[in-house]
Design a protein around this nucleic acid. Sequence first.
DNA 1: AGAAATTTGTCCGTATGTATC
DNA 2: AGATACATACGGACAAATTTC
Lengths: 140, 140
Amino acid sequence: MPTPHYGQPRYRAIAEELRERIESGAIPPGALLPTESILTAEFRASRGTIRQAIAVLREAALVVTEHGRGTYASLRPKVGRAVTGGRAEARPQEVAADPELAALFSVEVGTALVEHQSIDRRDGVVQAVVRTYRLLRPNQ
Amino acid sequence: MPTPHYGQPRYRAIAEELRERIESGAIPPGALLPTESILTAEFRASRGTIRQAIAVLREAALVVTEHGRGTYASLRPKVGRAVTGGRAEARPQEVAADPELAALFSVEVGTALVEHQSIDRRDGVVQAVVRTYRLLRPNQ
DNA sequence: AGAAATTTGTCCGTATGTATC
DNA sequence: AGATACATACGGACAAATTTC
């Protein structure tokens, strides 16, 4: 079998399909995904490709994998706009760069950065807090 | 050849070695890393293993790979010296809630949260750093 | 402009190691 | 101990993007 992946690679297509199942609730939060072996059979793909697909979901924090156990659907599907009141507030503010941010932005520790904070709530309960950091004035 | 990986897997050891070369300046910022083919010969490892090692560096934002071109060392500063617990960037990571996060999540200050950091970069230059915080155990 | 070489991307099949049940 | 499931590693083949000639 050749390797035709015009446009979308197989592993991404498979990741999409699995993402659908998770976000739709077909695979409920906390539940185990089918084993790599089963997915291999279902999608008629090699195990490496299946693992690549799962890696995409892991990167997206949609699943968590445990050695010898399996891969679980994350307890936190869809962070996006919940139809019911998942509104996010923003609050620009200047903060001092911690060592890691300083290294990333190539500035001195303590340099002022702009912090943008948004909050994802569901039914009034804070689900996630997102902080975005940028330079006051981009260098380079 | 068997696959003994007591403790450290091969690909992580190779990633460590390459990380050394980058952080020491042996591979200066912006420079191309040796091709996968060359690394395969040097480390006597399969291409898959080399690619896995490079994936680790990519995850740590130490390199950027471009299709058909090669893998570049990131333009990040060698400031990453002070290693006072300052990890380059482990992916999902547990951190202690600061007062503001603690208030938002309704937990005690210092409670462990999961931090996920992603970096938006253009041409190797960091544009923005996004940190997302969530509870370890979502308490509905 | 076009062809070839180079380099990374995707995919397969197999084998073995390690963790969990 | 045995079975199950994920992790690591190898080798081969072809696709796609880039560079070189």
